[in-house]
Amino acid sequence: MKCTECGYEAPLSEFRYLYNARIDGSISIRQCKNCEQWLAVDELKGVALEKVTGGAAPWGKSAGIEGLAEDVKKKKRRSA
């Protein structure tokens, strides 16, 4: 996997696993051991997606009504 910030390359497991706030998703936060940047990582693909900053939402919106509301909006947009 390649760090999106410093370009450091190493197997996924060498990026320090921090946590995944949504157990049902495959996005986790890992830390690059070279530049120490927190990265959002797709665990299924083994790819670093982007750095994690304050307010970042790597898991998207929370589940439930807020997420459903978005889905409904999208569906409506598509049907329109």
Partner: peptide
Amino acid sequence: NGRRLGDALYDGGISPGPGLD
């Protein structure tokens, strides 16, 4: 349940896991 070392545990009591309800 699919949780990894490092992940927060569920928020407790009899609350379902975040996003699992």
